[in-house]
Design a protein around this nucleic acid. Structure first.
Lengths: 338, 338
DNA sequence: CGGGGTGCGGAGAACGGTCTACAGTGAGGC
DNA sequence: GCCTCACTGTAGACCGTTCTCCGCACCCCG
């Protein structure tokens, strides 16, 4: 049984079937000016009958592909699905389609491959690429960055209010009476000063709140370096310190979940408080019940998509949007035992 | 500050810079025959210097885009990230790049938009599209379907052994002594007889095992129809039956998690057993500790990608791959109380 | 010294759309 | 009756690659 990889029907086929020129068909499908009702009907009938669909490649070559690229560093990150959902919602009803590009590690190559003509614009969550490189890229393709506290020229940003969010977590933990509070965050690559990622800010806020509370000497910033097992090890290490923390502020919920698992495994569930960030769906699960910061991932995704669409409409001034955060206090944080 | 949306550097620019023809440059970047070492050096130097990157659109128009499309119905589904991870791994090292297309609801339009020349091949998880339509599409674009027990002509399939997996769950629950076992599954659109989705099989296995155990009269198949809240309602309804089930077999882990939440909320955590399917990462979390069926999502994604690559190499015979399952018994299933 | 390779590079036609410039056709105004 | 103009539709260049020929130079061999 031979499968004929059928050459799809092209605009020429439609034109021939409708007895008009290719340009005429093009006008009809683009809703362009200069089409009589009669011709429109004929062409639309032909399109319908032949099942014609314009080739994205050909369109992209000439102008736009009507595709927006959303680059995400880790598909498994629960926060990402909020973003995707929001972006998808914002794009619905427009002629644009969202495509996701999962980055396996260094986002550079993923971003470039998106920029190579596949998409008309890019939304990216790329904590590891440096600002100058991004500026360069943004000069070729309209771009919105999620979760960067940069001060860019050529691209827009959408970011949560990490200052307020992390501040709320620390205030909450301190108010509960905690003193030995540790912060478990992302690897160094994501928490260096540049680019200014959310985690950089969260670490800074943690430090300053600790210092302000006179706890500078017991500041404890732990980083994991190697996947989930790294987080597990870091947790175990924190818990086995001579003076173990009574509360652990995790950089985001995915970390917090593993920390919780570690705390549970150590049989110290009520003893060590855990807070996360992102308010992912699992944080709300009654069996997890994790205190976390809601930073409206879906809203962030939607804003980013909307801003990108504006860029495609012609806006050139830079725009930066900050979304508000709110602390969701749940059972995972309580006063220290003693 | 004006951003010049710089016209990217094209193959002609490279050709001019290297003092050769466009065809020559094309040969170099494709590693084609007929290139002298000297010319290769000159061209590569020019490429490097200009930072040239071939346009995907132009390539796609002419032949292949070197992009594989992975269509996923719900990005938030935890099982999907396993698949993406596996597919990405299989594609790494090849000239191909994976792009994800999130389907908001009806997968038809998403699949078509992928097939419109964006990608060279498609991997899809589309429980709702019907077989004939898929056959049609697969004649235009090489395609591998995940999670379908179809008997297709033009596309390949990768699917878990749902017969064995669901059987293992039921055997386990029955062996524990459960009799009133309910099955909570996907909406009708996904559990009709055609197309044959994993859920169709799981429902069938549930029914037949119940019948075989002489429990046909108390078969209870519940379906949710409207998002997470639907699952919550279905759970509440099951729990408030006059003779409530002592065990609930959920169609997959995402459902099971919500069921667990409902059971916990009703204060009947040890009382009602819950089993899931997919063995997602949350099932393994000690605070969730959900009995589930491992069907190796990453392996499925990897197999699918590999099979698609084979198709692109020229294979035309249909292939169907079944991955083995194994039951992971955890704390969420125990003998009934009485 | 002529003929047949072989190795290297280029010319030019696709691919399937978009878009600009222009031609034809009536109608309306003077 | 002629000019202008709005309205429709078409011709044809163009986007950036790939790929099939084809030509040229050189070498080997009889």
């Amino acid at each position: 049984m031979s499968i004929t990889r059928g050459r799809g029907v092209t605009i020429s086929d439609v034109a021939a079937a409708a007895g008009v020129s290719r340009a005429a068909v093009s006008k009809v499908i683009r809703n362009a000016y200069g089409v009589s009702p009669a011709m429109r009907r004929r062409v639309e009938a032909a399109i319908e009958e032949l099942g014609y669909r314009p080739s994205v490649a050909a369109r992209a070559l000439r102008g736009s592909s009507y595709r927006l690229g959303l680059e995400i560093p880790y598909v498994s990150a629960r926060f990402m699905s909020q973003i995707v959902e929001g972006a998808n919602r914002a794009v619905a009803g427009t002629p644009y389609q969202l495509v996701l590009a999962p980055a396996d590690g260094p986002e550079y190559s993923t971003l470039e491959s998106l920029a190579d003509g596949l998409v008309d614009g890019i939304i990216a969550v790329s904590p590891r690429v440096d600002p100058p490189w991004l500026e360069e890229l943004a000069r070729r393709v309209p771009m919105v960055m999620l979760g960067r506290h940069d001060d860019p020229v050529a691209y827009d940003t959408v970011v949560g209010d990490d200052e307020a969010g992390a501040g709320a977590v620390m205030d909450h933990l301190l108010a509960l009476g905690h003193r030995r509070i540790a912060h478990l965050t992302e690897p160094e690559a994501v928490t260096l000063a540049t680019p200014v990622t959310p985690h950089v800010v969260r670490v800074a806020v943690y430090r300053s709140r600790m210092a302000a509370a006179g706890l500078a000497p017991i500041i404890e910033v732990a980083r994991w370096e190697d996947g989930d097992s790294g987080v597990r090890e870091a947790t175990a290490r924190l818990l086995s310190l001579p003076d173990p923390p009574t509360a652990i502020f995790a950089g985001h919920d995915d970390i917090a979940l593993i920390v919780l698992a570690g705390v549970a495994a150590a049989g110290r569930l009520g003893e060590v408080s855990v807070a996360g960030y992102d308010n992912t769906d699992m944080a709300q699960h009654p069996l997890i019940d994790l205190t976390s910061v809601d930073q409206q991932g879906a809203e962030m995704g939607a804003r980013a998509a909307t801003m990108l669409l504006e860029r495609l409409q012609g806006r050139t001034e830079r725009r930066q949007h900050v979304v508000a955060t709110s602390l969701r206090v749940r059972g995972s944080t309580r006063p220290p035992l003693s």
